[in-house]
């Protein structure tokens, strides 16, 4: 059972922290050349930060409800594994190139997700990779990352 607590103060604190960091960041901007009329480069971002502080304070004072299990289900091992696979996609891109990383990702994440056999996932991965290669590399002529492997193979 989840504890029925008001999540708004914690959310408001996070928003206020973002606003505080951004507000502090404006003091590192280069100085505005003298003689320019109107608002300087830092004034508008500071104004937004102040609005964010005000809205965060308002949110902290508002009674909110903790999200239900339907709205925000608990993160289980499978969810973390999918997140991990997504995070590892970029390094895989650098090593295997996009046409190596895509089928690998589709099979691994499909397997974690469950409900579909490895053979179907493999066939889908091969078919989709081929379709994407045709559309993006051959028709749209996009240059996509080839990675170390692609470079080694002369791609």
């Amino acid at each position: 059972m989840r504890e029925a607590r008001n999540p708004n103060p914690a959310i408001a604190a996070s928003i206020a922290a973002v606003a505080a960091i951004a507000f502090a960041g404006t003091f590192w901007f280069d100085p505005v050349p003298p003689g320019l009329p109107g608002l300087g480069a830092a004034d508008f971002p500071r104004l937004i930060c102040l609005v964010l502080f005000g809205l965060a304070a308002l949110l902290a004072l508002t009674q909110g409800q903790a999200p239900s299990e339907d709205d925000a289900p608990r993160l289980d091992g499978g969810a973390w594994a999918v997140f991990g696979a997504c995070a590892l996609f970029v390094p895989a891109l650098e090593i295997l190139g996009i046409w190596g990383a895509i089928p690998l990702y589709l099979v691994i994440v499909g397997r974690i997700w469950g409900g579909v056999s490895v053979v179907t996932l493999g066939l889908n991965a091969a078919g989709l990779t081929l379709a994407l290669w045709l559309v993006f590399s051959k028709i749209f002529r996009l240059t996509l990352p080839t990675g170390w492997l692609g470079a080694a193979l002369g791609g």
Binding site: C86, F89, I102, Y105, L106, V109, G110, R111, W113, G114, G115, V116, T120, L121, N124, L128, L132
Partner: peptide, 12 residues
Amino acid sequence: PPAILWPAVFVL
């Protein structure tokens, strides 16, 4: 199946 759909969305 979502196991095919959502990974494809990420790749796209």
